[in-house]
Write a protein that binds this DNA or RNA. Structure first.
Lengths: 183, 183
DNA sequence: ATATTCCGTTTAATATAATTGTCAATCGCG
DNA sequence: CGCGATTGACAATTATATTAAACGGAATAT
């Protein structure tokens, strides 16, 4: 999200030091330092205090923040966001960018040995495709089964039931794309 | 702010239970319960996880939340928000509503014995007026000094330098209004 | 009636945000 | 230079958000 950089930019634009803003908001300069360096995620109440003191509304703040986010082009590995609920069953799905604002969703997927998505019966429209980057994986699409190795790929209609299982001994990595994005 | 009620309303509108939403967002149902009852203010990161799982953007969320706030008509005593930085010098300024969205700002002010705003040289346009509700207070406006008792009032141009001092032995309460709001 | 399941709430333990106090670096000003 | 004031950052403590695990109520099934 990068609340820190945006807060710092706005604070400086208004010619305030961390201490000045802290005094107005009823917080401390240390807190602002931590927030601006993204070493902590402020509570909604704290952030509101800060923005009220500038002043700028929460809606405005997140509006320009998310606008910036959707204009973002380059992403560091650590900036990909995990969208698999709590690494369920050794499956990691790391999404590039904020898919809600784009027509294209790209995932960096990792399947630990034994990982299994289970047979999902998704019904959303669109297509999915991917390339195996490392290891191997068994992919089932609408009954058809195939073992894909590094360099192999797949492409199918999202409405078809599909399943990924890592039956090998090593982790498997895939880079995939969906359009439109699915959640 | 009332993040809790709004989150609950949106969650229910999407037909989700606390547990369902918690699973999607990677949090726990207990956390959502506490947030919805406004017993805790979630971190920005936590709130974003919840909204992403619904899904709804932060900007959208606060946009409708603050819109609701500005439509609010009645306020309980505890809902007035303290705008005096950390009760500086025994002065408490409790604001009715979210002045940023209105043309009128009403304050419930309390001055402890000895409290003093100091000579402020505000330059914003507009007018200020108030009525002393309890105790007494010495008011200085552009050089003119007067001791006001319960029932007395004042009305002056905001651009004039003004000062409030409680030189009595009891706390003094005032209900005042400004237009347009000043911060 | 009596389990069974799902709901929201609550409590104690834990993780994390916020404060406090201090630091080195920077910027005027004499 | 040398000094005071101000800045942003950091470590250790305190306060608070979050978790994990239980509870009681309401609806549904057995």
């Amino acid at each position: 999200m990068n609340v820190g950089d945006k807060l710092r930019a706005i604070r400086k634009k208004h010619g305030l030091s961390q201490r000045e803003l802290a005094a107005k908001a009823g917080l401390t300069n240390g807190t602002i330092s931590l927030i601006e360096k993204n070493r902590t995620s402020p509570s909604v109440a704290s952030l509101k205090s800060l923005l009220d003191a500038i002043p700028i509304s929460m809606a405005e703040f997140f509006s320009i923040l998310e606008e910036d986010d959707s204009a973002k082009v380059f992403y560091r590995a650590q900036e990909l966001t995990e969208i698999s609920p709590s690494h369920q069953g050794g499956v990691s799905l790391r999404q590039l960018g904020n898919a809600a604002h784009h027509a294209l969703q790209v995932l960096h997927e990792t399947y630990e040995p034994g990982a299994d998505t289970g047979p999902e019966f998704l019904s959303h429209e669109g297509e999915e495709a991917g390339v195996v980057v490392r290891g191997s994986i068994e992919v089932t699409v609408d009954g058809a089964v195939s073992l894909l190795n590094a360099g192999d790929g797949y492409l199918f209609d999202s409405r078809l039931p599909h399943r990924f299982r890592n039956i090998g001994a090593d982790p498997c990595e895939i880079v995939s794309a969906c359009t439109p994005p699915s959640f």
